[in-house]
């Protein structure tokens, strides 16, 4: 390994040394930053600015010069509804279906996921044997790729799959899970919780283990009941971690796409189409490619995410300070 790396590094040293002589040591920092800054600039900052231009232009041309200015018309058509709670009354009904699906999905997914993650973390924090093993059992699915997660569960849930076989055996009878809109949605929430729960369990467990042991010893001396100890010590001291976990889960939840797209393709109908899939379909999958609508929708999502991220930074900062 070093044999390959060393010569390369030595060659890079020549221009870097020349730069160092010219700039001095401290200004050389910019040379070290340069590759990263170019990438950040090209693939993070420039897109943010360009996104605004796309959002106010129309047509299906990808080159900005060929796109006619349409002002706020993209936003207008996205937001044009006689009743925002009823997608059927909207011009872009698919957008609003995606918005409400996402809202429901995020609420349920984050609720169940954080709930189960907390329960799992509390149990893992007890005096149990083989804690490391059990921790990795719950963490394991986090590493699986979204497509693999989707296929694993599709195989189990298919018409002649193992779950239906079990239900047949118990006498309940099989169900065509992914053809029924409500079941498809329910299972989408389930596999998403299944795939990501371990990550939040890990963070919450770290939070629980950071609570000083002597606080509990003091509670034991005072003969406080387990429930009281939990409510008066564990919960308040875990609250900052919980907040971080909640906001992180929300940020990720809003961006849900991969595993559900591979799992249901957004269907049946639009039952599991979420906002990122809407953007993907408008901009890239369908014809004509409505980049303007996709960019406008992206900006709306970005607004939500920026608020959530600022909240997260603030919460983590408070945690670090407090």
């Amino acid at each position: 390994m070093l044999k390959i790396v060393s010569p390369i590094m030595r060659i890079v040293e020549i221009p870097m040394l020349a730069l160092q002589r010219k700039l001095g040591i401290n200004r050389l920092a910019w040379a070290f930053l340069l590759p990263n800054l170019i990438l950040f600039g090209l693939f993070a900052f420039l897109p943010v600015i360009l996104n605004v231009f796309y959002a106010v232009t129309g047509g299906d041309n990808v080159l900005l010069a060929d796109r006619p200015n349409v002002g706020v018309r993209n936003f207008a058509s996205l937001l044009d509804c006689s009743n925002h709670f009823d997608p059927n009354s909207c011009r872009e009904d698919k957008f609003w279906r995606a918005v409400w699906n996402t809202a429901w999905f995020v609420t349920l997914q984050v609720g169940f996921m954080v709930g189960f993650a907390l329960l799992t973390a509390l149990i893992l924090n007890r005096d149990i044997r083989a804690r490391g093993f059990f921790r990795s059992v719950f963490f394991f699915p986090v590493l699986l790729s979204p497509v693999v997660v989707a296929l694993i569960w599709k195989w189990i849930l298919q018409r002649e799959g193992v779950l239906n076989a079990f239900l047949d055996w118990t006498g309940i009878g099989g169900i065509n899970w992914l053809v029924d809109a409500q079941w498809a949605f329910t299972w989408s929430v389930f596999i998403s919780v299944w795939a990501h729960m371990g990550f939040y369990t890990l963070i919450l467990l770290a939070g629980l283990q950071a609570i000083p042991r002597d606080v509990y010893d003091a509670a034991l001396m005072d003969r406080a009941s387990a429930w009281r100890t939990f409510r008066k010590i564990t919960l308040p001291l875990l609250a900052p971690t919980m907040l971080v976990v909640l906001v992180l889960a929300l940020i990720k939840g809003v961006q849900t796409f991969d595993e559900i797209y591979a799992f249901t393709g957004g269907g049946p109908g639009t039952a599991t189409t979420f906002i990122i899939q809407y953007i993907y379909e408008r901009g890239f999958a369908g014809a004509p490619r409505l980049f303007g609508l996709a960019a406008a929708a992206s900006l709306l999502v970005a607004g939500v995410l920026v608020v959530l991220t600022l909240l997260q930074l603030r919460v983590s900062k408070e945690n670090a300070d407090g």
Partner: peptide, 22 residues
């Protein structure tokens, strides 16, 4: 700036990113 890029997940800049890469 680095913190700023944290706030720009790829999922919300797909269209312009596509243009730049093209």
């Amino acid at each position: 700036m680095v913190i700023g890029t944290l706030m720009v997940p790829q999922t919300v800049v797909l269209v312009p990113l596509f243009l730049i890469v093209t």
